Amino acid sequence: MARLIALYTGGKDSTLAVQKALEAGHEIAILLTTQPSSEDSWMFHTACLGVQHILAKSMGLEHAYVQVSGEREREVKELADHVARIAKEYGADGILSGSIASLYQKSRIDSMAAKLGLLHLAPNWGAEPRGILEELLARRYRVMIVAVSTAGLGREWVGRSLDRESVDELFRLSEQWRFNPAGEGGEYETLVLDAPIYRLPLGVEYTRVWLGDRGHIKISRAMLVERTA
């Protein structure tokens, strides 16, 4: 079994990857969240950064933030430098990612891992969008859509929960507007408020920001709260 550095955003894909890795008997050495200086990052999630350490506490896992430029390719090299240092510090022998279908992301993490002599585990890789979203529902994840940036998803989707109704609607809209219903192309970003691997769920206070053709939530307060039935 591997001791892993988990590339972690707090979103549905990276959280599900952490749960699957733990279920497979792997150890999570640390959750690592990248903070791009630019919102135009090709590689990394930029929505709702700054709450991931709270989620790590709920899971009882170590966590660190690392800064990257957000510039294409340069940000990958910067992450590799951070991973090399952290792998040595934490005795990690692998990287965990939540990649589903993005060859751009997976190929770069594969290359990084190979150069550093690390494994790259991507337990969601190759899963169908319907399968991923149905698995989240079956596992009773509470997932909030925290950013949208594609035609077909309007302001009403900002802050909306992923549930049976919204998942079915995502698939209808994705057929009409030709986007990835799992959000793998950055069409939307998510934050997992509760999951089976959380000791306590995350509560957030936020406002919605809409910029004409895209939008996001702005979190003003985040804390762990008691779980309600």
Rank of each mutant, 00 (worst) to 15 (best):
M59L: 07
F44Q: 01
P123A: 03
I30G: 09
S174C: 14
A17T: 01
S99T: 15
D163M: 07
G11M: 00
S166E: 04
H26M: 03
D194E: 07
A84E: 13
T34G: 07
M1R: 11
L136C: 06
E73F: 14
Q35G: 00
L32S: 05
P123G: 00
S37D: 11
N180H: 13
E27S: 12
Q35P: 03
R72H: 15
D168Q: 13
T228V: 12
T34W: 08
R85H: 14
L116A: 00
R172G: 12
A182Y: 06
K106I: 11
I28R: 08
N124A: 10
R142I: 06
I145F: 01
K115M: 10
V146G: 09
A87E: 11
D163I: 07
V204E: 10
S166D: 04
A122F: 02
Q52R: 03
V158M: 02
L7D: 02
E89V: 12
Y198R: 09
R199Y: 12
D168Y: 11
E75A: 09
S37Y: 08
S41R: 09
M43F: 04
D213C: 13
V51N: 12
S220N: 15
G98M: 10
L96R: 11
L7V: 01
K88G: 13
S111N: 15
L200I: 10
Q19Y: 02
I219W: 02
P196C: 13
A138L: 14
Y8I: 03
H82Y: 04
Y8A: 01
E23P: 00
H45F: 05
T46G: 09
L224S: 01
W157Y: 03
F44M: 00
L96F: 11
F44A: 00
W125M: 08
D168E: 15
Q52W: 05
F179Q: 07
R172K: 12
H26G: 08
Y65H: 06
S166Y: 02
S220L: 14
L61I: 08
